[in-house]
Every structure is written in C-alpha cells, then in structure tokens.
Design a protein around this nucleic acid. Structure first.
Lengths: 130, 130
DNA sequence: AGTTGACCTGGAGCGCACTCCAGGTCGTAC
DNA sequence: GTACGACCTGGAGTGCGCTCCAGGTCAACT
C-alpha cells in the first residue's frame, strides 16, 4: 500500500529529483506521507504520472501540463477545457508526425546518395550539399 | 547574386541571429562578404542550410550536426561516417514516430472518454486519472 | 550634410526542464 | 549504540539553443 519515491521513479521512468520537481511546480498533487514523513504514492498517483509522461513525450510544454493539472483539480466542470487541450495536442502530434515523415524521406534520399557514392555510381546530387 | 542575411533568414525560416549563431559555432562555413563586409549567401549555402534545418527538425542535437558539418569539410573521405550518422538519425526518427503514434492512441482514448462524459454515458475510466 | 535602415561585432541574458548539492532526519541491521 | 541507506528540504547550478543588446560601420535617399 503506497509506493516509495524510488518505486515511483522506477515505474514512471522519471528520476526521483524530477518527481519532487513536478510536485513543487504543481504538476503532481502532494502524495500521502508515511509515518516518517516520506512520500507514499498511490496507484492513482502513478496512473496520473504515467499520463503526464505521455503528454511530455508528445512534447507538451510543462506550462501546459500544469494548466491541465490545475483544471483537473477543479473537477468535472473543467472537462470541456481539458478535452480541448487534448484535442489541440492531438493535432500538434499529428502535425509533428507528418513533419518527421517528411524528414525521413529526405534522410532516405541522402542515404541513397551515399550508397550510390559507395558503388562509384555518380551521385544524383553534387557532394557540396550532401 | 548572393543573398543577404535577411534573405537567407527568410528562406530558411531561421532568425538572423540564429544564422550568425550557427556560423559562430561552425555549423555554417563563413559565407562570402560583399564590398561593405556584409554576408552574402550562395545557393549552395542555402541548400546546406535547408538540410541543416531538416536535421534540426528531426531533433538532432546541434553537437551532432556540428560533427556532421566538420566531416563534410573533410571531403569525400568522410562519406562513410556521414552516412552512418544519417542512418542512425533515420532510426531515431522512425522510433520517435512510433512513440508519437502510441501517444496519439492514448490521446484518442482520453478524448473519447471526454466525449462519453459529455453524452452522460459513464466514462470507461474513472475521472481521477483523466 | 543628415537621417535612415540594414548590417556588423562581442558578449550577456533567457526560458526550459531538469539535476545536483549541503545539511539534516529516520528506521533498520549489525 | 552506531553505521548505513533511503529519504527529506531549500536553493543553486547546468546544458541547450537560441535571443537580445550596445555600440559601431556603411550605403542610399532627401
């Protein structure tokens, strides 16, 4: 019943320092404490943490995650605004994927050029821009 | 013949300050100068710049781009190492796309939950972790 | 001749997201 | 009872990638 900060760090993939930092900046509600004053994370804490790390992975800035966290604290009434944030982030992620895919193509093209070079076939594009 | 720094900024999407910064850290070879000592970028400079911005878009750290730039200066002999960098970056980009796609799914799931909420259909997951 | 505006340099400053540190308190194992 | 290790706090420090600034030069326009 209750995970130590080390356990929370291990399961979330964040460092202990980062967990305390997230708490300090109000991303994480202060978890329960054990008799000795040590943090004791609940399953719910970990679930929220896991969602937060997902948002981080998408590149959402911490400022925005704080906004989301603060809305969440206000309960069901803020659901509309929270949804809007997620919808917006979804769009940003989709855009980012498209952008990366375009870069993949450029990389493939350049890599192919290097392969031609290796085979002594004249490169499609001159070396200067490779 | 030759683009001013303002033109180079416009076509690359970088700021003038960033162009000078890139030059300072040896990402960009110093461009030609006009009679008054102002930078004059060639088409080749712009092509290289455009490739650099692609690499940046993929999230390649500047340190690594500098390494690539320095290899490029050594000419054809470094082609193998340059190719290796691109191949590695290609893999990183592919991984990142996969990661983002997984996040998209989580977002879609959460958004669907909010939609259920709006329709008064009980959410699949309890509010606490939403 | 004077004003504007684009450009120049070296160097300082900034926002972000951590990360590290000193100095201290507990609880358990020897 | 003491050594150890995990944890605590407040605050300072770090690395990255720019971004901004002061003070200056130069060419073109009025």
């Amino acid at each position: 019943m209750g995970y130590s900060i080390a356990e929370a760090a291990r399961t979330s993939g964040l460092s202990i320092d980062t967990l305390r930092y997230y708490e300090r900046i109000n991303l994480l509600d202060p978890p329960a404490r054990d008799a000795a004053g040590r943090r004791s994370y609940s399953d719910e804490d970990l679930a929220w943490l896991s969602f937060l790390t997902r948002l981080r992975t998408t590149g959402m800035p911490i400022r925005r995650m704080r906004e989301y966290a603060s809305l969440r604290r206000r309960g069901i009434a803020s659901a509309g605004r929270r949804k809007a944030i997620l919808v917006e982030q979804r769009a940003a992620v989709a855009d980012r994927i498209a952008e990366l895919q375009a870069c993949l193509e450029v990389l493939d093209y350049k890599i192919a050029n290097y392969e031609h070079l290796e085979q002594n076939i004249p490169a499609v594009q001159h070396e200067a821009s490779a």
